[in-house]
């Protein structure tokens, strides 16, 4: 299956990942992305029926941590890199729920 990367698809992707693509860049970015996607689409032709997917490069054993709590971070460390904070919490524009 081939897929053309047009402005509408680009917008969908940008919305999903919270990026703003200025109108004047949309066509060129769609072209760049489309070129890569088209070239990479050839991968679909590699026969992989019955092949396991591998999310890791090597087999990895399960690692479990003992349930021992550590001291929590000091408040100044928690918010030390935050642009806005108040009363130890991170401050964001008011969220409208629902």
């Amino acid at each position: 299956m081939t897929l053309e990367v047009d402005r509408s698809l680009l917008q969908t992707l940008a919305d999903l990942t919270r990026l703003h693509i200025p109108a004047e860049q949309q066509d060129s970015l769609a072209r760049r992305l489309g070129g890569v996607v088209e070239a990479f689409s050839a991968l679909a032709a590699v026969p992989t029926a019955g092949v396991d997917a591998s999310p890791y490069p090597l087999p990895l054993p399960t690692v479990l941590r003992a349930d021992v709590p550590e001291a929590p971070l000091a408040p100044d460390i928690v918010t030390g890199n935050a642009a806005r904070s108040a009363a130890g919490a991170f401050l964001v524009p008011r969220v409208i729920d629902g």
Binding site: A44, T48, P55
Partner: peptide, 17 residues
């Protein structure tokens, strides 16, 4: 599209290994 792109890549990764 995930299976055709990311999924296929993780299967080819197995073959490469």
């Amino acid at each position: 599209w995930q299976d055709q792109f990311y999924g296929q890549a993780t299967r080819v990764r197995t073959l490469l290994r």
